[in-house]
Structures are given as C-alpha cells and as structure tokens.
Design a protein around this nucleic acid. Sequence first.
DNA 1: AATAGTATCTTGCAAGACAAGGTACCGTGT
DNA 2: ACACGGTACCTTGTCTTGCAAGATACTATT
Lengths: 108, 108
Amino acid sequence: MVESLQIQLKKGVLEMCVLALLSKGDNYAYDIASRMAEAVGMGEGTIYPLMRRMQNDGLVSTYLQESGSGPPRKYYKLTKSGAQALKSQISDWQTFETAVRKILGDVT
Amino acid sequence: MVESLQIQLKKGVLEMCVLALLSKGDNYAYDIASRMAEAVGMGEGTIYPLMRRMQNDGLVSTYLQESGSGPPRKYYKLTKSGAQALKSQISDWQTFETAVRKILGDVT
DNA sequence: AATAGTATCTTGCAAGACAAGGTACCGTGT
DNA sequence: ACACGGTACCTTGTCTTGCAAGATACTATT
C-alpha cells in the first residue's frame, strides 16, 4: 500500500462511482446526483464541484442537450483518461477494501 | 441508505479500524499508527487527534504503563460504548461496501 | 557526546462534503 | 394570469479531518 488514505477516501470513492456510472453511458449531473443520493447518500451540492474538478483533470468532457423539461442538460462523457483513471481507482479500492477486511478480521 | 457519506467515510473508516484493533486487545497510539500505516497508509499525525476524539466520545478509556524503552505508553481500552459503536460501524461499512459494489457492477 | 529508536503531542494547511440558497425553465392546477 | 412543484443548473460558507512537519522527552547504543 503506497498511496495515502487521502487518495483512497477523499479524492477517491465518489469520483470512482461517478466514473463508473459514466462508463455505462453519458449522463448529466442532476441525474448522477439522484442515483448517488439513493445509493450512498451523497448530497446534490457535492456533485457540481466534483464534476468541475473531474473536467479540469481531463477525466470527462461535456456537451449540452435540450431536454424539454427544464433548462438544457449538460451531459458528461468519459474521456480515455477518465476510463484509465476508473480502472486504476477500482484497483486501489479493491486493495483498500481487502486491507480493511483484514483489519476487521474475525471481529466481523 | 439513510446516513450521509460523512458518516461512512469521514468519521468512519479509520475510527472503525482502530476500534477493531482495540477489540483484540488494549494498545497504544504509536503501535496502532504503525499497524494502520502498513495496512492503509495512515500517517502518524492522524492518530493522536483521532484517539482524543474517540476518548471525548467515550469510545475508549486510557491508562498509563511504563515501557522500559522510551516514555510511558498511554494504553487505550475499548469501552462498552466503543464496542457498540464498532458493531454499528461495521454494519454501516458493509452496507456502504455493498452499495459501491453495486454501482461498480459489471465494470469491475 | 551523538545518534537512533520509541513514544508522546501540536500546529498549520488544504481538500472536500454538505446544507442552504439562488437562478431559470417547464407543465399543471386553480 | 398566477402560483406551485419538478427539473436542472450553480455558488457560498462552514466544518471536519487527514497529513506533513516539527517539538518534546526518555532509553540504549555507538
């Protein structure tokens, strides 16, 4: 285990989940937030800064599309770099998960 | 999933791991930090504030013991409240882990 | 005496999750 | 016409917290 917890937890899990969702198809922030809210309780206020960060990091690109219900949606699309990051983060996550399971050990 | 990510990640994993270690026997911060550093890359500067927090929350109690090598060690011992918290946090962790696995889905 | 290891703790910083609020567009009901 | 609720975007301020770096102090070895 080389990386610090920061990478595993702080920069990590949310971004990884969003990348995973996008890997199944382009999507817009509001919908991503809804899914994540249901799954892991993430608030809507969290997603927009996160998406901007990911765009700055070159993990996603965006395009606008009219929706007919409300303002136009800003769709996010995984870049090659994003797909690569996803793979790497999944690997990190699994390593971390294994380490935690080992610490919990027979307490579980 | 009711609780926010805050509980799952921020307040969560490190504290849970420390509680799990203590559930296998009293220990002192320096040794806990060493084990955690090896397992999940946690820095030493993280453990002392964390232990204080946990003591304030009534999850652990402390006692001093001479060591013969260096300053006396401050041992931490799980309280009943701490043991309860551990159980609850493990349950939360497993819920979270499952949710993440579901999001990752067949990407993995 | 000097170094290295053990063990305690503090300080300052940066990242980020979230609540709360703001804007704006659309359709439905009154 | 108007209010409302839903969709969808985004910003601001606060609070937590993980971490690097350093301070302290005791013991044993060189």
